[in-house]
């Protein structure tokens, strides 16, 4: 029971964390991308369609990366090059992706409502580690995407906090004019962050279809992109914090499924609302922008 719950919590946390780590990079560069939900949805759909018709999970994952990058490229063109409002663009990108995946899903898979299943991504138990009681199955018996996601946590922390590249990234998010004056190329750095984020978000979407549901339904991301957005806030723009917040929200989702099955008196909607409500509380408590990059959301234009 406990083992199943914790394993499920890690599984639920993975796509949220993967997308949140991408969003962290983007936000450190000074851009807020609400279109993350759209990139996730596109990744989820393309991964399933390609994996279903080709029979190859690897091709599906590659397709998801391409789809996420494509969606973010639309966003980046408008937001980074044309300096258009980031919030409205992100919302439009999400609506567009919701529409496109819906339309093409019905076209490719008909309207019969029959589920189109694919084989789940294979699990890779990590040898003797996977045989440790409780910890083994919970932490060391997952598919490669889960390991990749959690390895990304220290990696990104190191890159952002301790490398020259991370310093440049943060400079673009804190003082873009100063970064530009130093010749750092704000536009290029923001594009790079959005491309990497697109790939990670696309993979997060692929996780939903290829590792979790093994099929696609309309709006399968169901707000997870927005949960990723709150993870970045609750995690205070720090990859370790992001990991902790993701696991907390993953646990809330896992608990919600359990409660729904048990039919307890506690309304399961409470757990579904938890990530959003907690984000509001954290924001209200800490005050808004203290830990956020100071130029977050500001379009940058050379004068």
């Amino acid at each position: 029971m406990l083992e199943a719950f914790l394993t499920s919590a890690i599984t639920m946390a993975t796509p949220i964390l993967l997308a949140a780590l991408g969003e962290l990079l983007v936000e450190e560069s000074g851009v807020i991308n609400i279109g993350i939900e759209g990139a996730m949805l596109a990744g989820a759909f393309v991964a399933l369609a390609i994996a279903y018709f080709s029979g190859s999970t690897a091709l599906g994952l590659a397709g998801a990366i391409a789809a996420g990058v494509a969606i973010n490229a639309i966003f980046a063109t408008l937001v980074v090059n044309l300096a258009v409002n980031q919030v409205v663009t992100g919302t439009a990108v999400s609506i567009l992706a919701l529409g496109l995946t819906g339309v093409f899903y019905r076209k490719l898979f008909g309207v019969t409502g029959k589920a189109f299943m694919v084989a789940p991504i294979a699990k890779i138990p990590l040898g003797p580690l996977a045989r440790i009681p409780l910890l083994g199955p919970v932490l060391f018996d997952h598919n490669g995407l889960v390991y990749f996601t959690f390895i990304l946590v220290p990696t990104l922390w190191y890159v952002i906090a301790h490398t020259r590249y991370g310093l440049r990234l943060r400079a673009c998010g804190e003082r873009p004019e100063a970064a530009d004056a130093l010749g750092l190329g704000v536009i290029a750095i923001r594009w790079q962050a959005l491309i990497v984020s697109g790939a990670l978000t696309g993979l997060a979407g692929a996780f939903l279809t290829l590792a979790y549901a093994n099929t696609f339904v309309e709006n399968i991301s169901a707000g997870r992109g927005f949960v990723a957005l709150s993870v970045v806030i609750v995690g205070r723009w720090n990859s370790w914090g992001l990991a902790a917040a993701s696991v907390l929200f993953g646990a809330a989702m896992a608990l919600q499924f359990g409660l729904q099955a048990l039919g307890t008196v506690v309304p399961y909607q409470l757990f579904l609302a938890l990530p959003y409500a907690l984000t509001l509380v954290v924001l209200a408590g800490f005050g808004g922008q203290a830990a956020a990059p100071s130029a977050l959301g500001e379009p940058y234009r050379r004068q």
Binding site: L272, A273, Y276, L280, G288
Partner: peptide, 15 residues
């Protein structure tokens, strides 16, 4: 509280 209304309104939608 200086909370960005974009984030708060998105969260309030889901609530």
């Amino acid at each position: 509280r200086d909370v960005n209304e974009v984030i708060s309104t998105i969260m309030l939608n889901f609530v």
